[in-house]
């Protein structure tokens, strides 16, 4: 699924969805961003009947949003939209559509609330997300580069940077200090493949020459650098308490394919769209670094300079 902004509207592209349940799930994963905005829904060739379309509209309206129009190639969907007086646009939208990783805790909750509103409340106990160890996570995002190696967020990042009048890669004095602190830590150097079920713990930095397979975990107080494919769980900047964690810690890998990334108390998971464990293309290596910016983990390509 793809989503993108245009003026005060939010374009949600679910044209790959084959079932209505998939559309509802995909839609719910961008609920936070959709809030209060107009939604333009790209539906593709799926057939949607009147009651299903009503549910989708109700879900959007739960978030104080409005379903502005839909695009579709299905006649049935078009007929349903006409009878519900939802406008159908003929024009393909050609706005760039960066991919969003959803926040699992938040969006699951939102989804439940929204679904409850539509289908009636079920007596299912709410799990208190405040009890989580990572309590002060407001949002988790896992922003990834697309297949072509071009960062879909490049323009987006620049816009944010211009708005705040700072450079994207600006290293402030404070960060420099912190990076020096990390340099002082001892480094554990391991030259082998880390396989499923294995766990590596370091009191300082951790360098692994080799691949880190899914099902393993590598934990370090400082930075983690993997000279290979990072496929497991990597946890950098770990402290005994969340206050002791080091948010300036970085995770670097020749190929970033981690199931989960944790830096201090910030947490990100691999987007479901990339959740195909048996495909691991190792012929293209794009060295990347994961770091924390504004309580999110972001992943950036490492450039030559």
């Amino acid at each position: 699924m793809k989503a993108g902004f245009v003026e005060n509207s939010f374009i949600v592209d679910v044209s790959n969805a084959r079932k209505t349940s998939e559309i509802i799930y995909e839609l719910s994963s961008v609920l936070e961003d959709v809030k209060g905005k107009n939604v333009r829904l790209k539906l593709g060739e799926i057939d949607i009947n009147i009651s299903q379309l009503t549910s989708i509209r109700a879900l959007i309206e739960c978030m104080n949003s409005k379903l502005e129009f839909i695009t579709t190639t299905s006649d049935e969907t078009r007929a349903s939209a006409n009878s519900l007086e939802i406008p159908v646009s003929e024009i393909e939208n050609k706005v760039p559509t960066p991919e969003f990783g959803a926040d699992p805790v938040q969006s699951n909750k939102e989804l439940e609330l929204a679904l409850d509103k539509i289908f009636g409340s079920e007596d299912f106990e709410e799990y208190d997300s405040k009890d989580y160890k990572y309590a002060d996570i407001e949002e988790m995002q896992y922003i990834n580069e697309d297949e072509t190696g071009q960062d879909p967020y490049a323009d987006f990042n620049k816009q944010i940077a211009n708005a705040n009048n700072v450079q994207v890669e600006d290293i402030t004095e404070e960060i420099k200090e912190q990076l020096k602190e990390t340099e002082k830590l001892p480094t554990l150097y391991i030259q082998r493949t880390i396989r499923s079920g294995q766990s590596i713990n370091s009191d300082g930095n951790l360098v692994i020459i080799g691949d880190v397979h899914p099902g393993s975990e590598i934990i370090a107080k400082g930075d983690i650098t993997v000279w290979g494919v990072l496929g497991g769980i990597a946890q950098a900047g770990t402290g005994l308490t969340s206050a002791e964690g080091n948010r300036y810690a970085r995770i670097r890998a020749l190929k970033m394919n981690a199931i989960q990334l944790r830096i201090a108390d910030v947490f990100a998971r691999r987007p479901d769209s990339a959740n195909i464990p048996y495909i691991q293309k190792t012929d293209t290596f794009t060295p990347e670094v994961a770091r924390v910016r504004d309580k999110h983990i972001i992943i950036q390509r490492i450039y030559e300079n």
């Binding site: 998939e22 079920e122 299912f124 499923s196 766990s199 099902g215």
Partner: peptide
């Protein structure tokens, strides 16, 4: 992901 009535208590891998 799809069904809120379905939960998993996972095993530890390590």
């Amino acid at each position: 992901k799809k069904n809120p009535h379905l939960c998993l208590l996972a095993a530890a891998q390590t």
